[in-house]
Design a binder for these strands. Structure first.
Lengths: 239, 239
DNA sequence: CATAAATGTATCATTATGATACAATAATAC
DNA sequence: GTATTATTGTATCATAATGATACATTTATG
């Protein structure tokens, strides 16, 4: 493979050095919570989708920009949850391997091989609306169940772990369910989302009582399709 | 005043550019929650104590280092709570004014006048153990009640607001009280800490029941001093 | 020694939560 | 058509958590 010029890589002049972001992008399908994971070209390395912050760009906007590029979606629910700043979290070695596997030969001291502090965000989105777009260095970006992730580079496993913890904590405070489901859904679907996030079974009747008494959903017409049983109502989130 | 040489300022070579931290240092006294605030020399400007991260230093360690320098304490309870990254949060103007008021004349484009992303931490400590040490640019560092802060530079007011929100959320999950009080304390003192943090009155008897049933404190001997009333027990936190 | 002030505990009412029961109903099998 | 089955929506009971109140206790003061 012909060596590519480093000029095709993100340029230091445009970006804040030593600063990156990583996104834990949650989606729900098949009764499981999933995350989007990048696979880098020719390297067998897996990572969270992330990126860099432009010098004249708000941190939040950089993350939104990356998210839109990778998923095709705008207006995604996004929350910053932690910043990872250990010296040894950055591995110049790993980054070099990824770049070389893509045909680049970054010179010694290239800014992408430096130490990076990473601000971590999680996103919640409707799995069915996403068309994953891998970045320039990656073969593919695919959904993996949270409990069945491939080995990830650097500290990305820790980042995911923390994201899940924070998501669980926020489950009752924020409208988590509303962002992972289509606009209308059954009570059963919502319960399965909660169970997937919490990793435990909930009692159906008490869950229903809790959701209804929390006054967070409105009830719509009944849904008549497939299932030898009473038709469930459809619900949607308020506001 | 003779102009000082910029070489006395923190050097770019040693530090990660565009990255800072700010600390919201909580202490409790006089039934109120207080924060340590710096007053810069000759400028009438007030700010949270903060600093920069060395190129070979863990982010957490940089914050601990700064905290020890400002308070004289080691082993302080410290928690990262948010990272502030808006482009317009940094004000080169303000930083320039502070430096000039200290006799420095930073050249155009000096790194301290750049845009900064700031990782915010809060600390909890025993007010009586602290000896505040202002930094090189500051006249003084003093305790201010959270509800009576002077006007702060840049977005420091937002940082404090967020810190208080997170502290309130964490109040029941983490051992907040144990870090703001001396090792032994009365139930009344603990209740006052809770009330100061939450900004609301609690029912004494129910608070006592809650703390005792949470199994977080051990009871010691009674305290016989000052007060025309039944002597209270002293308690201390477990673990 | 009576008083005032605050403490430690008990108890009642109310609310929230967990567990169980049961009628209603849409698709399927016959 | 009719019985069957799986799931839904709701009600209800028991238990736990929380809020409100009562009261005896005890320490310094006058």
């Amino acid at each position: 493979m012909k060596e590519k010029n480093s000029k095709d890589l993100p340029a230091l002049e445009c970006h804040i050095p030593h600063l990156a972001y990583d996104s834990v992008i949650f989606g729900y399908h098949d009764s499981e919570l999933h995350i989007l994971i990048l696979e880098y070209h020719n390297s067998g390395l897996y990572a969270l989708p992330g990126g860099f912050v432009k010098r004249d760009e708000n941190l939040d906007d950089a993350v939104k920009r990356g998210l839109t590029e990778r998923t095709g979606l705008r207006e995604v629910y996004l929350e910053q949850f932690s910043t990872f700043g250990k010296v040894n979290r950055s591995k110049g070695r790993v980054m070099k391997k990824i770049l070389e596997a893509n045909g680049y030969a970054p010179e010694q001291g290239h800014w992408l091989l430096d130490r990076f502090i990473s601000v971590a965000y999680y996103a919640l989105l409707d799995h069915s609306k996403v068309t994953p777009v891998p970045d320039a260095l990656s073969d593919s970006m695919n959904w993996y169940p949270v409990d069945g992730l491939p080995p990830l580079i650097m500290d990305h496993k820790d980042i995911v772990k923390k994201a899940v913890e924070v998501l669980r904590q926020n489950l009752d405070k924020k409208l988590v369910g509303s962002n992972l489901l289509p606009p209308k859904f059954t009570m059963r679907a919502l319960q399965q989302v909660y169970e997937a996030i919490l990793g435990e079974k909930l009692t159906r009747t008490n869950f229903q009582r809790k959701i209804l008494s929390a006054d967070m959903v409105v009830r719509h017409e009944k849904q008549f399709l497939g299932g030898a049983h009473k038709a469930p109502y459809l619900y949607s989130f308020k506001s």
